[in-house]
């Protein structure tokens, strides 16, 4: 059991100290908090470092594999899941984790995402949802909320946002959970649970982009945005008792879906055996 106060010491052991530190993310960015939670979760399960593969696409969040000492691959925009599918099928013993952003996985990689969920392949996907394309200059992403501003929507956004977790549930993922960076401890627990699951497991980490999104929408500093997460998140159990219109604006936190479904990796192995007979 990792104590909170060993967290920094532990995370430092997993970092590639020959890379440039401090890391590239803006001061106060939530991506670092998710990275910390991910490392603690991996450590909790005592996985060998060589058994972990961290795959990412392009974006702020996708810089994550650069800094950690696992098998890492930094791939094309939106294609992290396709690379991960290849890796998992080539060597099913590996623990494949995909780290991706909301723009990366929902816009250009949206199709790959829903089909990976439909196949239910044994991959853990962590989606960092900051409601905007941060790295490229604050353009609207598929999760930018209706009525919010971005650099490509200066007169407010007229489209409606994707709900990532609900989409994953509908698409057929076997484990779906949502956490926030304010609740870093809870997020770690959710990632821990997702790592043990057999099928496609999704953890949506709601984070903040105070530099692009917060500035344009006057949401205040990183601390203000984290306090907003604290005030506006409710547990799944509580949300079930509330009226639908009250839940609309809230972040429902916790496990949204946990059901063992036929797993693509195992089915593939069975298929191979059948074909050999």
């Amino acid at each position: 059991m990792v104590k909170h106060r060993d967290s920094t010491h532990l995370v430092h052991q997993y970092l590639r100290h020959n890379k440039k530190f401090p890391h590239v993310w803006c001061p106060g960015c939530g991506n670092g908090i998710v990275l910390g939670a991910l490392i603690r979760a991996i450590h909790q399960h005592q996985y060998e470092r060589d058994d972990i593969v961290l795959v990412s696409g392009i974006g702020c969040s996708s810089r994550m594999p650069v800094y950690v000492d696992f098998n890492t691959i930094h791939t094309l925009h939106g294609r992290a899941l396709t690379f991960a599918t290849g890796i998992k099928l080539a060597n099913p013993k590996l623990k494949v984790i995909v780290v991706t952003g909301d723009g990366d996985s929902m816009a250009i990689g949206g199709n790959h995402f829903i089909h990976a969920a439909r196949r239910n392949i044994d991959i853990t996907t962590i989606i960092l949802n900051n409601n905007i394309y941060g790295m490229t200059g604050g353009q609207s992403s598929p999760t930018t909320n209706y009525g919010d501003k971005s650099t490509t929507a200066p007169y407010t956004h007229i489209e409606h946002a994707f709900k990532i977790s609900e989409l994953a549930v509908t698409a057929g993922a076997s484990f779906v959970a949502r956490g926030t960076v304010y609740h870093a401890d809870k997020l770690q627990k959710l990632i821990e649970a997702a790592l043990t699951k057999d099928g496609f497991s999704v953890v949506e980490a709601v984070t903040h982009c105070h530099v692009q999104y917060g500035k344009l929408n006057k949401l205040g500093s990183n601390v203000d945005m984290m306090k907003w997460q604290k005030d506006n998140s409710i547990t799944v159990q509580k949300a079930a008792k509330m009226k639908e219109e009250d839940v609309e604006d809230k972040i429902t936190m916790g496990v949204l879906m946990d059901k063992p479904l036929p797993n693509f990796t195992k089915e593939m192995a069975k298929l191979k055996d059948r074909a050999k007979e």
């Binding site: 104590k3 920094t8 401090p22 890391h23 106060g28 960015c29 991506n31 939670a37 984290m226």
Partner: peptide, 17 residues
């Protein structure tokens, strides 16, 4: 020693001992 700062520090720059 609750280390709430440690688990939330995005830069892994604070340590409680």
């Amino acid at each position: 020693g609750c280390a709430q700062c440690e688990i939330r520090c995005p830069d892994f720059a604070i340590e409680i001992k």
